[in-house]
Computed example of a mutant assay.
Amino acid sequence: MTVIALLSVAPVIEDSMAAEVAKAVDALEDFDVEYETNPMGTVIEADDVGTLFAAAEAAHRAVDADRVSTVLKIDDKRTSEGRAREKVDVVEDQLGRPARSESE
């Protein structure tokens, strides 16, 4: 996988967004992508940018609201095959510890 992105899809509503965000995340299942959702968005990995855009569009369209806010940040490393987890591993190697606080 060579294309990594951070996708954030949210309805612009007053109430909880959880049900609509879940629809967006579920839409990714129809594509050949790996993903992991976190509190600020979903990291997606795909073999190519076309697949990534298709998955992001499906997630956007899955949200049923009068107004939807979508942000897509793409890291398209065309000369190497880096994975999202490897990016975190390198930072953790530099830190000498996990890249998160210990208060849980």
Rank of each mutant, 00 (worst) to 15 (best):
68 V>W: 01
79 T>Q: 11
66 D>N: 08
31 F>K: 03
66 D>H: 04
16 S>P: 08
88 V>Y: 05
101 S>P: 00
74 I>R: 03
13 I>R: 02
39 P>W: 13
33 V>G: 09
55 A>G: 06
44 I>V: 15
52 L>H: 00
68 V>H: 01
68 V>G: 03
79 T>R: 08
62 A>H: 00
35 Y>D: 12
42 T>D: 12
23 K>V: 06
63 V>E: 07
99 A>D: 05
10 A>I: 00
93 D>S: 12
79 T>N: 13
88 V>P: 04
81 E>H: 06
34 E>Q: 14
38 N>F: 15
56 A>C: 07
10 A>S: 06
63 V>A: 09
86 E>Q: 15
3 V>K: 03
12 V>F: 05
101 S>Y: 01
18 A>N: 13
13 I>W: 00
39 P>Y: 13
8 S>D: 09
93 D>Q: 11
101 S>W: 02
90 V>M: 13
101 S>K: 01
17 M>I: 14
42 T>I: 12
66 D>G: 11
39 P>F: 14
34 E>I: 10
92 E>F: 04
103 S>R: 05
8 S>G: 09
28 L>F: 02
3 V>E: 07
21 V>E: 12
8 S>T: 09
34 E>P: 05
37 T>R: 14
46 A>M: 10
86 E>I: 11
45 E>L: 14
97 R>N: 04
36 E>M: 14
59 A>Y: 01
19 A>D: 14
31 F>P: 03
32 D>C: 10
40 M>W: 06
43 V>W: 08
5 A>K: 01
92 E>Q: 09
44 I>F: 08
40 M>L: 15
102 E>I: 04
52 L>S: 03
6 L>K: 01
10 A>G: 02
78 R>M: 13
48 D>I: 10
91 V>G: 06
8 S>F: 03
59 A>W: 01
19 A>F: 08
45 E>P: 09
103 S>C: 03
90 V>I: 13
47 D>H: 08
35 Y>F: 15
10 A>P: 00
18 A>S: 15
71 V>G: 02
100 R>D: 05
24 A>C: 03
11 P>G: 11
81 E>V: 05
55 A>K: 02
8 S>H: 05
26 D>M: 09
72 L>G: 01
96 G>P: 02
8 S>R: 07
58 A>I: 05
20 E>D: 15
16 S>A: 15
58 A>C: 05
12 V>I: 08
104 E>L: 12
17 M>W: 05
22 A>N: 06
49 V>I: 15
74 I>E: 08
58 A>W: 01
64 D>R: 05
47 D>L: 12
40 M>C: 10
27 A>R: 00
81 E>N: 10
9 V>P: 01
97 R>H: 04
69 S>Q: 00
102 E>G: 12
99 A>V: 01
45 E>K: 10
100 R>Q: 07
49 V>L: 13
20 E>N: 12
87 K>N: 11
53 F>T: 03
95 L>R: 00
16 S>R: 10
96 G>H: 02
70 T>K: 00
14 E>C: 07
22 A>F: 06
89 D>R: 07
90 V>Y: 07
85 R>S: 14
97 R>G: 04
9 V>W: 01
18 A>I: 15
68 V>N: 02
47 D>Y: 07
77 K>T: 10
92 E>A: 09
60 H>P: 04
83 R>C: 12
1 M>L: 12
44 I>Y: 06
45 E>H: 10
13 I>N: 03
48 D>S: 11
97 R>E: 11
27 A>K: 00
